[in-house]
């Protein structure tokens, strides 16, 4: 029983990271109607920036906040430079651009920082939280940081004017323009925020998975699974979906011996396929309506 509880807690810890990536994906999806496959690589690149800053001697939290700011700016720039020009282009052009972005960021990180696995610092320590615990201080810190982030985002979108304008622009860009909202700026802002959220997720998970250019591959898949599970149209759904995927991953890895470590990634893909077949709109998403 206690093992189960602890495994659930540990699952929630990684689940918060999947929730962040899922949320970043959903925010972008709502703003531009496309899935950003490069979200994980953007987060990985941000994490390398943080690592570089700490290598240069920056204290952890300085590196953390500088990285968040730089990532935000980077996200805005990617939207302005790469996506704005193709905003009316068909889906396949977007897919091509995202895959290109993914490959560029991946090889650029490899070129700048090589492919050797690097340890990444944690500000919380790694002492076990309970006497016989599976969940350690870093996992607890990870949960705290992401919960804080999610609360911040909730307040931002729910109670600020910019948040309201961003939601309006995502729901109905034409009507948003009619009330004077600069929809283009809102999209860029959304990209900046998604990149910053990804950066935080990357820095939180890096001490666990270690730092290397391919570190986010698994995380991105789980994030996608969470987003699909919760419904691509619902930010709250994405968060819940991400948490559920984290718990399922952990429980399956522990209690179903065949799955172990190697097959765990298959679970993410299985979740995506099952949800798409059984309930395409996800747990909290709106069904896609087609006029008949």
């Amino acid at each position: 029983m206690e093992l189960l509880l602890q495994q659930i807690l540990a699952g929630l810890a990684t689940g918060t990271i999947y929730a962040c990536i899922a949320l970043a994906i959903v925010m972008t999806y709502q703003a531009i109607g496309h899935l950003n496959f490069a979200q994980g690589e953007m987060a990985m690149f941000s994490t390398f920036i943080a690592w570089q800053l700490t290598q240069w001697g920056a204290p952890y939290w300085v590196a953390f906040f500088v990285t968040v700011a730089v990532s935000f700016a980077g996200g805005v720039l990617i939207e302005l430079i790469v996506l704005r020009p193709i905003q009316h282009a068909p889906v396949l052009s977007h897919v091509a651009v995202f895959i290109g972005l993914l490959a560029i960021l991946n090889s650029l990180a490899g070129f700048l920082w090589d492919f050797n696995v690097k340890p990444f610092p944690t500000p919380f320590g790694t002492a076990p939280l309970f006497a016989n615990g599976f969940i350690d201080a870093h996992q607890a810190g990870m949960i705290a940081v992401t919960l804080f982030l999610l609360a911040f985002l909730y307040v931002f979108f729910r109670f600020t004017r910019v948040g309201l304008a961003m939601r309006a622009a995502a729901h109905d860009p034409v009507s948003a323009r009619l009330v004077g909202i600069r929809v283009g700026w809102m999209t860029a802002l959304g990209w900046g925020m998604a990149a910053a959220i990804g950066a935080i997720a990357g820095m939180m998970i890096a001490p666990v998975v270690f730092l290397e250019p391919n570190m986010m591959l698994g995380v991105l898949l789980y994030g996608f699974a969470g987003a699909v599970l919760g419904g691509l149209t619902s930010p709250a759904g994405a968060v819940i979906g991400g948490l559920i995927v984290g718990v399922i991953e952990n429980l399956a890895g522990t209690f179903i011996p065949v799955i172990g470590g190697e097959l765990k990634l298959t679970i993410a893909l299985a979740i995506i396929v099952v949800v798409l077949v059984m309930k395409p709109q996800g747990l909290l998403g709106r069904p896609v309506l087609h006029r008949v």
Binding site: R161, L164, A165, R167, A168, H171, D172, V174, S175, A176, L178, V179, G180, I181, R286
Partner: peptide, 22 residues
């Protein structure tokens, strides 16, 4: 506009606030 241009998923009050957003 034709077809009213309501933000259907937002609340009535949010719709009104959006009118004054600028």
């Amino acid at each position: 506009p034709d077809g009213r241009g309501t933000f259907t998923r937002l609340t009535v009050e949010e719709n009104l606030e959006l009118g004054a957003i600028t």
